[in-house]
Write a protein that binds this DNA or RNA. Structure first.
Length: 739
RNA sequence: GGGCGCGUAGCUCAGUGGGAGAGCGCUUGCUUCACACGCAAGAGGUCGCAGGUUCAAGACCUGCCGCGCCCACCA
C-alpha cells in the first residue's frame, strides 16, 4: 500500500478514467438475466454545438443512480446515444459547408465537399451525401461530448453507443413505422395541420407553444340578405376571403333567426351560411364569429364537424396567394370587386395583408370604428419566429386520440420521481387534440420507407402506398426501388415515386429503449433489457420525449418502456433566471471540471433534488472540492499506520460504528427512492462529525503503542469506517473514493 | 380559466406534529504530528399573511398574497 504524502485531486480523472476503460469496469455483462439487470434509457443529447452546465447536472443525476445500483449488485445497462437527427443539426451543416439538401438528386459517391466553393448559393446535394456530411460534422461534436462525459465520470458503457441518424436507428425507426402502417395506426391523409411558414414544414401539437403577441380586434360588417347587417369581431381580417361561414351558439337568441340564412362577406361579396355550433362562445367578441379555412384549430373543428367547404388563401410560405373569384368554389355576387380586393392582398405577408384589408374595409364602410389593440396568445413552433398557420397538406399521422385513456393509465402506472411530475403528463394527455403528425418536409432525418405508384398521368396514388420489405431496412425511397419496379420507372407514368418527407425527430427518439436494446436485431439482448428500469430526463420534454416513448411502447409492446422516470430540473443562474448564452452567463462544462475537479462538480449536481430547478453556485462546487480533499486526507490518516489493526472493543469506537450503520441504512433507503441528495446530505453530515469529533477523540489513542488494545481498536474502527464512508460517497465522488 | 411546485438566517437549502437547523458568507481566535481546500468559538430568524384543528403547528386543514412552471378553442 502506498499513501501519497500530499493527496491531491489533480489528475485523478485521467488516471482513473484510463484505468476504468482498460479494465472495462462499466462494461455490461449480457449474460445476466432480467432480474439481475438495471437498464437505463439514457437521454441522447442533441448534437448541434456544445453541452450546457444543465446537462452536466442531469447526467450526473443519472450516474448517481447507475453507480448506486451497480454497488447494490445489479448489472447496470448504461448506454449512450447522440441525437444527431433533426433540424438543429441540419441547419448547422448547411451553414458550415455551404450546401443544401436536394432529395431529388442521386447519390454521388465521389462527392468531395472541398469542391464546394465559397459561392453565395448553397450547392445542392443528395440526401445521402447530405447525411454523410452531417455524420462528419456531428462526429466532431460527439468526440467532445464523449470527452466531457468521460471526464465527468459517467459510468457509461461506451461500447453501447448509438446515434439517432445511424443505421440501427433508421432501421428500427422504419420497422416500427411499417408495423404501425400495417395496423393502420400510421396513415397518410390530406388534412389541415399546423405549419411553420419559415421552416416550411408541418409540426406536431407537442412542438407548439403559446406566445403573447400584440393583436388588433377589427369589428367587421357582413350584409344580410334582408338588407340588414351583422357585425363580427376578428383579429385576422385578412382571412375574410377564406371565410366560409358565420357561427353562433345554438342557444343564443340574438342570432337564432339568422341561423340557416346566408350573409355576404364584405369586399368579396361571397355568400356564406350562418350556422350554429356549441363551441361558439356568446361571451366573446360580438357573440358571432367568422369561420375561415383556416385561422386556428377551432376553425378546423367547425369546418370538419359542420361539413363546410374549403377556401384557402394562405400559401405554405405564409403569404396570401392569388385566387380568382367567379370559379367553382369561389362564387361571388360581385366578381369584379372580389378580384380587385384579392389583387390588393396577393403576394403580401399576413401582417401586410391585415393592415391593407383594414384600409379596404374602412374605405368600403365595412369597418366599425377603428381596430383596438389587444394582447392575446398566438401559437408558435417552439423554434420558430412567426406564428403558425393552419395549412391543408398531405402528411403521415399516427393515431393518438383513440388511445388517450390507456395512455392516461400508463402515466398512473409509471413511478415518477418526483411524483408530482406525473401531473404534467396527465394534463398533456387529457388535452391531446390531434393525431400525431410525424412527417416533416425536411431532409436530415429518417425517411419514410414508402413509395407511391404513379397512375397513367404520373399522379401519385397516395391511398395505395407501397411499403418497404422489412428485411431490407433501412432504405431511402429516393434511392432504393420498390419491389416489382425498375429504377427507370422512377417518376414515370405507371412507375413509382418515393415519399419525399422525413420523420419527426421524436418519431425516432421515442424508440430509444428499442434502439439501445436492439429490438428484433438482437432478440436475446432485448429480452434481457426491456422494459427498462429508468428513464432520466428533464421536465421540459415530458410531453414530447417521455410521452411519445410511452406511446410507442404501448402500441408496439403493450407495456411501459420503463418502470421509473427521474425528472431533473433546470440550472438557473444565481439571479434565478434561466441560463442562456445571450446573457453571457454560461460557464463551459469542461472549464468547470478542469478548475474544480469532476468530483466537486458532481457534488454540486448531487445536492439538487430531482424536479427542482437549481441555482448555479460556484461556491457549492468549492464545498464539494473540499469534501473530496477531506476524504483523501482522512483516508490517508486511516491508512498511514501500517501496523495490523485489532479487534474493535472500545465503546466509543462501537458507538461510532453504530451511528454509521444507521447512516448506511438511511442513505440506502434514500437512494432506493431516487433521493440521492438526501443520501449525500446524511452521509456528508456524518462524515464531518466523524472527522472533527471522532477522529480527534481517538487520535491520541491510535498513536499509542501498536500493541496497545485501545490503539488496535481505534485503528480497526478507523479502517472500517473509512471503508464504509468511501463507498457511501463513491456514487457522488467516484474519483476521490476510487483513489 | 384549470393544474402543479415553491415562499424557513444575507445567499443556497434541509426540516418525517413536541429542542428552529446545515453549508456558504460574516466576526473572533488557532502554523495542534490526516487536512489552513484545515480547526474552534460567535453574531444572525414575526418559518409569506390570516384564520382553524390539536395539550402542542415551520409542518396538518381553509382562505389570501407573492414567485415560478405546466396545460387550455388565439373570434
Amino acid at each position: 500500500m502506498r499513501v501519497p504524502d500530499k493527496p491531491s485531486l489533480d489528475g485523478l480523472e485521467l488516471r482513473w478514467g484510463e484505468r476504468w476503460e482498460a479494465d472495462g469496469v462499466y462494461r455490461f455483462d449480457r449474460s445476466k438475466t432480467r432480474e439481475q439487470i438495471y437498464a437505463i434509457d439514457s437521454p441522447p443529447p442533441t448534437v448541434s454545438g456544445s453541452l450546457h452546465v444543465g446537462s452536466v447536472m442531469s447526467y450526473t443525476h443519472t450516474d448517481l443512480v447507475a453507480r448506486f445500483q451497480r454497488m447494490r449488485g445489479l448489472e447496470v445497462f448504461y448506454p449512450m446515444g447522440w441525437d444527431d437527427n433533426g433540424l438543429a443539426t441540419e441547419r448547422r451543416v448547411q451553414n458550415f459547408f455551404g450546401v443544401r439538401c436536394d432529395p431529388s438528386l442521386p447519390y454521388d459517391d465521389g462527392f468531395d465537399v472541398a469542391s464546394v466553393g465559397g459561392g453565395d448559393d448553397p450547392v445542392g446535394i443528395s440526401r445521402r451525401n447530405f447525411i454523410e456530411l452531417c455524420d462528419r460534422l456531428t462526429g466532431e461534436d460527439e468526440k467532445a461530448f464523449e470527452a466531457l462525459f468521460r471526464r465527468l465520470g459517467l459510468s457509461v458503457d461506451w461500447t453501447h453507443l448509438y446515434t439517432t441518424i445511424g443505421e440501427r436507428s433508421r432501421r428500427i425507426s422504419q420497422r416500427s413505422f411499417l408495423r404501425l402502417a400495417q395496423r393502420d395506426l400510421a396513415y397518410t391523409a390530406e388534412a389541415p395541420t399546423m405549419w411553420d411558414v419559415d421552416f416550411r414544414t408541418a409540426v406536431a401539437q407537442a412542438e407548439i407553444e403559446d406566445r403573447e403577441r400584440e393583436g388588433r380586434y377589427h369589428v367587421v360588417v357582413f350584409d344580410r340578405e334582408d338588407g340588414g347587417t351583422v357585425e363580427i369581431e376578428t383579429s385576422r381580417p385578412e382571412l375574410i376571403p377564406a371565410c366560409v361561414a358565420l357561427v353562433a351558439h345554438p342557444s343564443d337568441a340574438r342570432f337564432a333567426s339568422l341561423v340557416g340564412s346566408e350573409v355576404l362577406t364584405p369586399l368579396f361579396r361571397v355568400p356564406i351560411p350562418v350556422v350554429a355550433h356549441p363551441l361558439a362562445d356568446p361571451e366573446k367578441g360580438t357573440g358571432i364569429a367568422m369561420i375561415c379555412t383556416f385561422g386556428d384549430v377551432t376553425d378546423v373543428t367547425w369546418w370538419r364537424e359542420l361539413g363546410l367547404p374549403m377556401r384557402v388563401v394562405i400559401e405554405k410560405d405564409g403569404r396570401i396567394g392569388s385566387r380568382e373569384f367567379g370559379k367553382p368554389g369561389w362564387e361571388s355576387r360581385d366578381v369584379r370587386a372580389a378580384n380587385a380586393a384579392m389583387r390588393e392582398l396577393s403576394g403580401s405577408t399576413v401582417n401586410q395583408a391585415r393592415r391593407r384589408i383594414a384600409e379596404l374595409l374602412r374605405d368600403a364602410g365595412k369597418l366599425v370604428g377603428e381596430p383596438t389593440a389587444v394582447r392575446h396568445t398566438v401559437k408558435f413552433y417552439e423554434n420558430g419566429d412567426r406564428p403558425l398557420e393552419v395549412v391543408a397538406s398531405r402528411q403521415w399521422f399516427v393515431s393518438t386520440l383513440e388511445f388517450r385513456d390507456r395512455l392516461l393509465a400508463r402515466g398512473e402506472e409509471l413511478a415518477w420521481h418526483p411524483a408530482y411530475m406525473g401531473a404534467r403528463y396527465r394534463s398533456w394527455v387529457e388535452n391531446l387534440n390531434a393525431d400525431w403528425c410525424i412527417s416533416r418536409q425536411r431532409f436530415f432525418g429518417v425517411p419514410f420507407p414508402v413509395w407511391y405508384p404513379l397512375d397513367a398521368d404520373g399522379r401519385p396514388a397516395y391511398d395505395r402506398p407501397i411499403l418497404a420489405d422489412e428485411s431490407h431496412l433501412p432504405i431511402d425511397p429516393q434511392e432504393d426501388v420498390p419491389p416489382g419496379y425498375a429504377p427507370e420507372q422512377r417518376g414515370e407514368p405507371g412507375g413509382f415515386v418515393g415519399d419525399p418527407d422525413v420523420m419527426d425527430t421524436w418519431a425516432t427518439s421515442s424508440l430509444t429503449p428499442q434502439i439501445a436494446a436492439r429490438w428484433e436485431d438482437d432478440p436475446d439482448l432485448f429480452a434481457r433489457l426491456f422494459p427498462m428500469d429508468l428513464r432520466p430526463q428533464a421536465h421540459d420534454i415530458i410531453r414530447t420525449w417521455l410521452f411519445y416513448t410511452v406511446f410507442r411502447a404501448d402500441l408496439q409492446h403493450d407495456s411501459l418502456p420503463w418502470t421509473n422516470a427521474a425528472i431533473s430540473g433546470f440550472v438557473l443562474d444565481p439571479d434565478r433566471k434561466k441560463m442562456s448564452k445571450s446573457k453571457g452567463n454560461v460557464v463551459t462544462p469542461m472549464e468547470l471540471l478542469e478548475s474544480h475537479s469532476a468530483d466537486a462538480v458532481r457534488y454540486w449536481a448531487a445536492s439538487a433534488r430531482l424536479g427542482v430547478d437549481a441555482a448555479f453556485e460556484e461556491q457549492q462546487i468549492k464545498v464539494g472540492r473540499r469534501l473530496a480533499i477531506k476524504v483523501l486526507n482522512a483516508s490517508k490518516f486511516a491508512l498511514s499506520n501500517e501496523t495490523p489493526p485489532g479487534e474493535i472493543l472500545e465503546p466509543l469506537d462501537l458507538g461510532m460504528l453504530r451511528a454509521l450503520r444507521s447512516v448506511v441504512d438511511e442513505a440506502t433507503e434514500a437512494f432506493e427512492a431516487y433521493d440521492y441528495a438526501r443520501a449525500l446530505e446524511r452521509t456528508e453530515a456524518f462524515f464531518w462529525w466523524f472527522c472533527d469529533d471522532y477522529v480527534e477523540l481517538v487520535k491520541g489513542r491510535a498513536y499509542r503503542s501498536p500493541a496497545d488494545e485501545g490503539s488496535r481498536s481505534a485503528r480497526a474502527a478507523l479502517h472500517l469506517a473509512l471503508d464504509v464512508l468511501q463507498r457511501l460517497l463513491a456514487p457522488v465522488l467516484p474519483y476521490a473514493a476510487e483513489e
